[in-house]
Design a binder for these strands. Structure first.
Length: 553
RNA sequence: GGCCUGUUGGUGAAGUGGCUUAACACACUGCCCUCUCAAGGCAGCAUUCACGGAUUCGAAUUCCGUACAGGCUACCA
């Protein structure tokens, strides 16, 4: 085809495209950023609920932009209308906000490089394709799905590479007249790249995480514009990341195989190529088969972002977990610098795991517990309340009604270098501190505690009424219990009892246990005396009587 | 089938030719502390880095093959 014919073809194909490339190049000028600032982007497709892997990817985009004082933007990649899910876009935005992964610019976040939604940029993509048609780098292809399937089958039989390339690219050399004829017949078409790649040549590419990788050049005439005029991922990626001046493309490693295509596109379009960092997916070892696989929303409850919201896992704790996955040396750093913010750690691509990192629920739990242990009772109360107002309104009401007590209970054994670690998520507070709220305690079934022992209620009552002094310190209190125990035929310590079990009715711990069961309904609890102090004598007696009632039933 | 990538204890992993008798963390086990639990202290937990060859005075680290796993091979991203 001659230059004139190509110009004519471009007009026939894109009669409505009036702007030139320069128009957009001028509209989206180079960003004015400091040396070394990274521009990253998170480009989700609104095709379903948000996955932990999505969060992980967005998290990486955020930290690298943040630490380099760059820009992290959100771009909605909605070029596949067939797979788009209702509400998917809004969901992405609200999940990101919910997890405190906030872009500097992007869809709903503002910025000068929009639109940040690919479905609104079709005119831009077509402008560039039109130019490629003029240059002879793109052509309309009228092959039907059946024809494509047929050549594919032929290729499989002949054991050659599948795809539209070389002699299999039937329409790449159609004459202008042939094209006009097909157009007149209303035949549908896609626009394909006229690849100039030679598969016998090798391109060497350096990925920031995976290192050097060699590929054969791309010779496939892959699709640029689908028959609805909307671009494929590859083409949209090249255009958008050029116009939006992305410096670092951080994305899942399912894209590494597409590198030859992307390298080629940037070259043909005359764009400067961004750096690439391909992150491996979060995997898991399948309980049944033992195989390593991607997280599955169906099999693994923690695969979906919604899990963390519902269970009430603080986003700071999740950030901490994601950071440990992201950089192998983060965990150790954090151990030394636990009072610092994540943003003070310097993340680097070379410290990413090259293979997939597998999801470690135990470690997440541990991180969460440590997170909670560092928070004061008041802080835990406020956060739990905020969570409950969304996910457990009844409990939120109870929390508010009992806020003073609740804060005190949540604060037990929190001071000092070794705070308690018993809560890992907001949803656990309700069960773990069920004894803290009177109305909940009244409904508490004592039989829930696993003890089948019979406790001496009168002895406990005697102790509480005649010997319990709540205005002393913990040590004095315990000495008092000890004295009471000895006077009533109990050993002063478990050790003494163990040595001569026949001499005693039990030991001091048994008395504590009896009190504990009666006032908390459980065998295990935080410091007993602290609980008693908060409760006060009247409520303690009330609870013992409740227990008496329960036993006599 | 073709093209890429990966494979170090129960788990996450460190490790880039001698400092490794394989760090650290989580989990687990035992003991100690102790009124229960949590926390904490001490100790234990891969003689070996998927397998087989090669290079080297020396390899988890380099090279080649094999096996296994994952990804891509779409008008999906």
């Amino acid at each position: 085809m001659t230059k004139e014919e190509r110009l004519e073809l471009a007009e026939i194909l894109f009669p409505n495209i009036k702007n030139s490339r320069d128009y957009y190049e001028n509209m989206y000028p180079e960003r004015k950023l400091a040396e070394g600032a990274m521009v990253t982007r998170y480009g989700p497709s609104p095709t379903g609920s948000v996955h932990l892997g999505n969060l992980y990817s967005a998290f990486c985009d955020m930290i690298y932009a943040r630490q380099s004082k760059g820009i992290f933007f959100l771009r909605i990649e909605d070029t596949d209308s067939k797979r788009e899910v209702e509400g998917g876009v809004d969901n992405i935005v609200s999940v990101l906000k919910g997890f405190n992964i906030t872009p500097n610019e992007g869809y709903t976040f503002g910025g000068d490089y929009g639109s940040y939604k690919q479905s609104e940029r079709v005119e831009i993509y077509q402008t560039y394709v039109k130019d490629l048609v003029i240059q002879g780098y793109a052509y309309p292809c009228f092959m039907t799905e059946d024809e494509l399937a047929a050549i594919r089958e032929e290729q499989e039989i002949n054991k050659v590479r599948t795809g539209v390339y070389g002699i299999y690219a039937a329409d790449r050399d159609l004459s202008l007249d042939e094209i006009k004829e097909k157009l007149d017949n209303k035949e549908e078409y896609v626009v394909r790249l006229r690849s100039d790649g030679d598969p016998n040549k090798t391109i060497e590419f350096t990925d920031l995480i995976k290192g050097k990788i060699k590929f054969p050049e791309n010779d496939e005439d892959f699709v640029l514009l689908k028959k609805d005029g909307v671009p494929t991922y590859h083409f949209a990626h090249a255009i958008d990341d050029h116009l939006m001046h992305t410096t670092h493309v951080i994305r899942g490693d399912e894209w590494v195989s597409s590198i030859p295509k992307h390298v080629q596109l940037f070259k043909i379009l005359g764009f400067k190529r961004p750096e690439y960092a391909h992150i491996a997916p979060i995997t898991i070892k399948d309980q049944e088969t033992g195989a390593i696989r991607k997280l599955s929303k169906r099999k693994d409850p923690w695969a979906g972002a919604i899990y963390y919201e519902e269970k009430g896992i603080p986003f700071d704790a999740l950030h901490l977990y994601l950071a440990t996955i992201t950089n192998s040396n983060f965990e150790e750093w954090y151990l030394q610098n636990s009072e610092k913010d994540i943003s003070e750690f310097e993340f680097s691509f070379s410290k990413h795991a090259v293979g997939g990192s597998s999801f470690d629920n135990d470690k997440l739990t541990n991180i969460c517990k440590t997170y909670f242990s560092r928070k004061s009772g008041e802080e835990v109360y406020e956060e739990t309340l905020a969570w409950a107002e969304k996910h457990d309104k009844d409990y939120a009401k109870l929390l508010k009604e009992n806020s003073e007590d609740m804060k005190k209970f949540l604060d037990i054994e929190k001071e000092g270098p070794r705070p308690r670690k018993d809560i890992g998520m907001y949803s656990e507070v309700k069960e773990e501190f069920s004894y803290a709220i009177d109305s909940m305690f009244k409904d508490e079934n004592y039989s829930k505690n696993e003890s089948e022992k019979e406790y001496d209620i009168d002895l406990v009552l005697d102790y509480i009424n005649n010997h319990l002094d709540l205005d002393v310190n913990n040590e004095e209190w315990f000495n008092g219990v000890r004295e009471f125990a000895t006077n009533n035929g109990y050993a002063a310590s478990p050790k003494e009892y163990k040595n001569n079990p026949d001499d005693y009715k039990g030991h001091v711990g048994d008395i504590c246990e009896a009190i504990r069961v009666m006032i908390t309904g459980r065998l295990k609890s935080p410091d007993l005396f602290s609980i008693m102090k908060i409760l006060g004598k009247d409520r303690i007696v009330e609870r013992v009587n409740l227990y008496k009632e329960f036993i006599s039933k």
